[in-house]
């Protein structure tokens, strides 16, 4: 597991842990990207990826400025912090978005710059050491961006059941929406530690399924994220404390199925 040590790795950890210390620079460089739609997020992520790969053809001297131009930014919420009450309190939403998500963005940018430098210096060890941090903080940014978007206040359609192709797939696979929610909540409750549960679509077969991911591991590769629920304690603890089953039950009242439908292919 990323960031954790196995018995074999423990001895050298004593002297080297400080290099893993995550330095967080609070920043007010929050940039509005307006109403964040999936396509906008993807386009923004794609631009980042393009920029990150661009230096292979650009001069090495241009790396640093390229990394700065490709910085990830905290997306605005499409609703007020208090808009998901009583399912999720305004206080949780504000901390979760403005502090937790911001930290993932800041750290992702920070470690992206470091990995760019390591590439420039052809330091393979440093690149490998930074990869779990890119996965963690980049994953945190991706997961939360998708999460905010797949939630909505009840006044903006939150909780309205899915329609069309997604509704059909859910009924075909799980019998009914209620039965799907029950299985999804069982998956959420079964997470041992921090993590997420996702409704995913298999990019090879088109089938949907429920998958859980540890920590901030993002849904990438074979599966496409359709709907994600954050099961980290910070997502619910101020409202629900140890009663996480109540959070898992309440959050369906603010799930934005319209956003989920748009992600399905």
């Amino acid at each position: 597991m990323n960031g954790h040590t196995s018995a074999e790795e423990r001895a050298p950890l004593q002297k080297s842990t400080s290099s893993l210390h995550i330095h967080i620079q609070p920043t007010d460089s929050r940039t509005s990207i307006g109403n964040m739609s999936t396509s906008l997020f993807r386009a923004s992520a794609l631009r980042c990826a393009l920029r990150a790969s661009a230096p292979t053809t650009a001069s090495r001297a241009g790396l640093a400025s390229t990394a700065i131009r490709g910085k990830a930014t905290l997306p605005d919420l499409a609703y007020d912090y208090g808009a998901l009450e009583p399912s999720i309190s305004g206080k949780i939403m504000e901390l979760h978005h403005k502090n937790h998500h911001q930290t993932y963005v800041t750290s992702f940018n920070n470690f992206s710059e470091q990995i760019a430098e390591a590439k420039q210096q052809e330091n393979i060890q440093a690149q490998i050491a930074l990869q779990p941090l890119i996965n963690f903080h980049g994953g945190g940014h991706i997961n939360h961006t998708l999460f905010w978007e797949n939630l909505a206040p009840t006044s903006q359609g939150g909780g309205d059941p899915p329609t069309g192709a997604l509704s059909k797939k859910i009924n075909d696979s799980y019998g009914s929406l209620d039965s799907f929610k029950e299985k999804f909540n069982t998956a959420l409750a079964g997470i041992q530690g921090s993590g997420w549960a996702w409704l995913v679509q298999d990019t090879q077969t088109g089938a949907i399924g429920i998958k859980t991911y540890a920590n901030q591991d993002p849904v990438v590769g074979q599966f496409r994220p359709i709907l994600g629920i954050d099961a980290w304690e910070h997502a619910y603890y101020l409202d629900y404390q140890n009663r996480k089953a109540e959070y898992f039950k309440a959050i369906w009242n603010v799930v934005n199925w319209k956003a989920a439908e748009k992600r399905l292919k």
Binding site: T17, S18, F136, G193, W232
Partner: peptide
């Protein structure tokens, strides 16, 4: 303490 702190803050997720 500094080394311990760095290890604790380097945890990714619960632990």
């Amino acid at each position: 303490r500094e080394a311990f702190k760095a290890a604790l803050l380097g945890l990714q997720g619960s632990g």
